[in-house]
Simulated assay, not measured.
Amino acid sequence: MGARPGLRCFGVDLLFPEQKALRGSLMQARNSQRFAAIATRAVSIGLIALVVFVITFPFIWALVTSFKDRIDSLQMTFIPFIQFEPTLFNWRNELVVTWPETRRALYNSAVISVSAAAIATALGTLAGYALARFRFAVGNSNILAWVLSQRFMPPVATLIPLFILFQSVGLIDSLFGMVLINATLVLPFSILIMRDYFAEFPKEVEEAAFVDGASFWSYFVRIALPLSTPAIAASAIICFAFAWNEFIFASVLTNREAQPYTLSIISSAGTRGINFGFVSTRMLLAVALPVILSLFVQRYIIRGLSMGAVKG
């Protein structure tokens, strides 16, 4: 049975007790939902702010430290002009005084990273298409597991054999040798991304192309490659970032001519200890190029990963 209708007297609603109780319950439920929505939003904003703070704090601290002298960099100071006097000594030393060494190291890093990313992306695209469209006797999953095992294996396990091999063929301290090493290290990422991306292509498109007389290579070049631009961009940027940040093999296989910029960061240590101002300045320069590059292609990275590596 429904609630009894209320009465209206002199423009005022007269409610029965059960109607008042129902209205109170509805208002209480509405207030509870509103409070829950506000609390959920506040918690979400708080968590997002915490994550952003945790991610950006090291870079903010490095930026502040890069404007400190050697003594101030050892102090727990953060506010310039109040807690310490900012200086451009570290930036002037890196961009003016030692600029020839800095330029050579940045050039080496750029050549190694771009070349390794290009080789890995090209080979990974071909291998990914083959693993997505063909079936091999040894098993596609076995091939993929073998490729990924290169990343599961600790790099130190192959460091000494590669050093002996490079020394025997004369590739120690050469850009070509570092390109080969980095291309090998980042190739599994490219294969995984491109394989998952090509596996999601509708087979109807491929079958229609074959009906029209297209070969596998023609379909790959004219249809698959243009449609896989987001995945190729994501693969290239990820391979570039990993090659740019590589340190272990560079510290052993290079001496001076082919040293990347990552080794310049550890050279900030001297007989008087670590100069944290130099470390901060060089760290900011090292992360600047990958960050700027990723900002221009972030939509390709998100789309490529969401349609490739995230789904599997």
Rank of each mutant, 00 (worst) to 15 (best):
Ile191Phe: 04
Ala120Met: 07
Val96Lys: 15
Gln167His: 13
Pro230Tyr: 00
Ser228Pro: 03
Phe296Gln: 07
Arg103Cys: 12
Ala309Leu: 15
Thr229Val: 14
Ala241Ser: 10
Trp91Val: 05
Ala118Gly: 08
Val186Phe: 11
Phe134Glu: 13
Ser294Gly: 06
Leu7Val: 10
Trp217His: 11
Pro260Ser: 08
Ala157Lys: 07
Ala208Phe: 05
Ala127Pro: 00
Leu284Ile: 02
Arg34Glu: 13
Ala250Tyr: 01
Arg256Ala: 15
Arg103Gln: 11
Met307Ser: 05
Ile223Pro: 01
Phe176Glu: 13
Phe216Val: 05
Arg70Gly: 05
Ile232Trp: 00
Pro161Ile: 08
Glu257His: 13
Ala120Gln: 10
Leu26Thr: 12
Thr98Trp: 15
Arg272Lys: 07
Ala120Thr: 08
Ala36Arg: 11
Leu180Tyr: 13
Ile55Glu: 01
Ile193Pro: 01
Glu246Asn: 04
Met76Leu: 09
Arg256His: 15
Ser113Asp: 03
Ile191Tyr: 02
Ala286Lys: 00
Arg195Ser: 04
Ala3Glu: 14
Ala234Tyr: 02
Arg92Val: 08
Asp72Gly: 07
Ala241Glu: 03
Ala224Ile: 03
Phe59Glu: 00
Trp61Lys: 05
Gly128Gln: 00
Arg4Phe: 09
Ala116Met: 11
Leu285Gly: 03
Gln75Arg: 11
Glu200Ala: 06
Leu227Pro: 04
Pro80Cys: 06
Ala157Phe: 11
Ile119Trp: 12
Thr254Val: 09
Gln259Phe: 12
Ala110Thr: 10
Arg222Val: 10
Ile172Gln: 10
Arg222Lys: 12
Ser149Gly: 06
Ile193Cys: 02
Tyr129Arg: 02
Gln167Met: 11
Ala3Cys: 14
Phe134Ala: 10
Leu159Glu: 04
Ser73Ala: 14
Phe242Thr: 09
Arg256Cys: 10
Ile301Gln: 01
Phe201Glu: 00
Gln19Cys: 08
Gln75Tyr: 06
Phe163His: 06
Phe57Val: 01
Ser168Arg: 12
Ala243Leu: 08
Phe134Ser: 12
Ala132Lys: 01
Ser113Tyr: 05
Leu175Pro: 09
Val138Trp: 11
Ala231His: 01
Leu305Glu: 04
Leu225Pro: 04
Leu175Ala: 10
Phe10Glu: 12
Ser264Ile: 09
Ala236Asp: 02
Ser115Trp: 09
Leu74Phe: 13
Val114Thr: 09
Ala224Cys: 04
Asn90Leu: 07
Ile82Ala: 09
Ala120Phe: 11
Ser141Gln: 15
Ala236Ile: 06
Ser268Met: 06
Asn108Met: 08
Ile274Ser: 01
Val310His: 08
Gly11Thr: 02
Leu285Pro: 03
Ala233Cys: 12
Leu7Gly: 04
Leu225Trp: 06
Gly312Trp: 03
Pro154Cys: 08
Ser251Asn: 14
Arg92Pro: 04
Asn275Pro: 07
Glu207Phe: 00
Glu206Ser: 03
Lys20Arg: 15
Gln298Thr: 08
Ala62Met: 02
Ile302Trp: 02
Leu106Met: 08
Asn255Ile: 10
Ala209Val: 05
Ile48Tyr: 11
Ser25Asp: 15
Pro5Trp: 09
Ala214Arg: 07
Ala157Tyr: 07
Arg92Thr: 12
Thr254Met: 09
Val12Tyr: 03
Arg92Phe: 13
Gln83Thr: 03
Cys239Trp: 08
